[in-house]
Design a protein around this nucleic acid. Structure first.
Lengths: 344, 344
DNA sequence: CTGAAAGCGCTTACAG
DNA sequence: CTGAAAGCGCTTACAG
């Protein structure tokens, strides 16, 4: 493989000049430029980016740390980040942690040793990972560019891009109330993409905003999965005065709710409205097609990537950003007017 | 940020010795090793991997070029590759091309300029990309380590890991024949993950192996998507002597077939057996749950990663490998015994 | 507009 | 078991 010297020799100039041509930087006369370009082509010269990175101290790489690329949510976010990176000449290192703290720490250490230019990271899904949060803070303290995708920890000193979980839940509940529903249940999990608490908050707030009181018996907790959605929905449907609508923390729980309703002979949406959260691909394929709250997953990744690279180039806005993206209510066939409900 | 010299100075040794300790290479007395380790910790020293890579000429990075990480198939493959990489101390660069030739070329050039140690690549989904195939050959000629995941082009000089498309189709058809089916249709697309032609071959072979003749009217072509599955299935169901089973090129087409059957009032599996290919997550969630042929996606990625890194370390087997992984028949509720069919 | 010199932070033979 | 010297292939001031 040829080096910059070979090119310089062939073109009859110095390596510096070749470097200038390659990097389009500094003055080079048209004639020289031409000679150099010809030499580059003749030798099929490919600059050694590793050497360049070593000298300049920037690797033009960013890392994305997520639990699992196999999860559609993260895959879409990753796609957004990668597109942002590519647009600006950066490359993306993919890191799957399964939410595991040790893995997180290892990847953060890697990011530092490899002189990665910046780091985008999502929260782990189920645990708290205090130790890696601290490490993140330390990196931050060394002014290592970092952006969080979704709320990970309380830190006023890290840029964060998230979706409006409270607002999304509020949207859903407000819609249901508008359809005449009064007994609206919430089924959720304790921790999921950090969104659980905020969604519950949105639920409560929406009820309050419409002069309704939350019935604590209608708020149930479980794991954010299909089977717990099924289990909790069964509980709700067995109540003497059952809810006319169920808002689930996520689509998988909502799909479990559909299964429970089907089994109990409760018709959706005629007798029960069901609404989920996330708008996973499956949501539009189940019967009845699921109404849900969609998050702008791709944009989340794209904006995170863009902001991160702005930070790297020190041309972002002053101070720390906290950007909240709006969710979108997607009404399909699992929600409808409340039946037998007085409207006030 | 401290350098190896700072550590050396603090420990009272030379940089070479520090390097030896870090890389666990060569002899260092226990006492010295200890002093060095202490110094490393005291300075919170992190070796500059970029500098190391520059010197050694190996970046310890591999790149994965796929059409789109958002597609569950590629996401799972990617996960496998990343896990293999991590196990052996390599990092993974993710490259999405959307099957676009220009993007492919750009990423291949990047791989070379960045001195990436190796490249794993899948076929584009819809076009042929001759030009990037040629570039791949060129890289190969420069003995750049490459492994193809799935058949991309005919080349005896590149390692390839693929699944047995012909065998998978053969499995499915043999199963249907065993259930008494004789009129078995095939709906497919012209090009899909390179698997289309082989799956058709498997279909034909299985019929032949059981003394049956393929009825060319039952072999239909379209795009490998839900709506074309629907469209082609409608055509088949409208035939005077309609098939008792339909084998679809992939699950989305099979799901389209289910929709068409539902609409036409044809009961699955009582009146029609339907079998797909891929075992996407959705397959087990539709009604009736879809029988299908599962490919070992994760293993595909894992083995590709492992082989690639073996190649990089020059410790793989001699000559080019072509590894074919077996598929698995997953029987759910969309297939059953043929009705009103004589058994010979 | 062009180049000579120095250096980025490591590792690699080579000595001893 | 340890170190002095050289060099990996670029870019960065500094001159001219």
């Amino acid at each position: 493989m040829s080096t910059i010297r070979d090119v310089a020799r062939l073109a009859g100039v110095s390596a510096i000049t070749v470097s200038r041509v390659i990097n389009k930087k500094g003055y080079v006369s048209l004639g020289t430029r031409d000679k150099v370009k010809r030499a580059i082509r003749a030798l099929d010269y490919h600059p050694n980016v590793l050497a360049r990175s070593f000298v300049t101290g920037e690797s033009r790489m960013i890392a994305l740390i997520i639990p699992d690329i196999t999860n559609q949510f993260y895959a879409t976010v990753a796609r957004g980040v990668q597109d942002a990176a590519k647009d600006k000449g950066y490359h993306l290192l993919l890191c799957n942690t399964d939410g595991n703290q040790e893995e997180e720490l290892e990847y953060m250490g890697m990011a530092r040793e490899r002189r990665i230019d910046g780091l985008a990271i999502t929260p782990p899904e189920t645990s708290e990972n205090k130790k890696s949060d601290r490490y993140l803070q330390q990196l931050r303290g060394e002014s290592f560019p970092i952006v969080m995708i979704g709320q990970r920890m309380d830190s006023p000193e890290i840029d964060i891009i998230k979706t409006d979980n409270q607002g999304g839940a509020h949207q859903a509940i407000t819609y249901l109330i508008g359809q005449g529903h009064r007994r609206i249940a919430f089924i959720g999990g304790p921790l999921f993409q950090g969104g659980g608490p905020d969604r519950l908050r949105g639920y409560r707030q929406a009820l309050k905003d419409h002069g309704l009181e939350a019935d604590e018996n209608l708020i149930l907790e479980g794991n954010p999965q299909e089977d717990d959605g099924y289990r909790l929905a069964r509980q709700l449907l067995a109540m003497p005065e059952r809810p006319t609508a169920i808002f689930a923390l996520n689509d998988m729980m909502a799909i479990g709710t559909l299964r429970a309703s089907h089994e109990a002979g409760v018709k959706v949406p005629e007798e029960l409205s069901v609404i989920g959260y996330d708008d996973i691909p499956l949501a539009s394929l189940v019967v009845p097609r699921l109404s849900t709250v969609a998050q702008p997953k791709y944009e989340l990744g794209k904006m995170a990537g863009d902001l991160l690279i702005d930070r790297i180039r020190k041309k972002g806005p002053e101070g720390w950003q906290s950007i909240t993206l709006n969710t979108k209510l997607v009404i399909r066939d699992s929600t409808g007017q409340a039946r037998q409900e007085s409207l006030s």
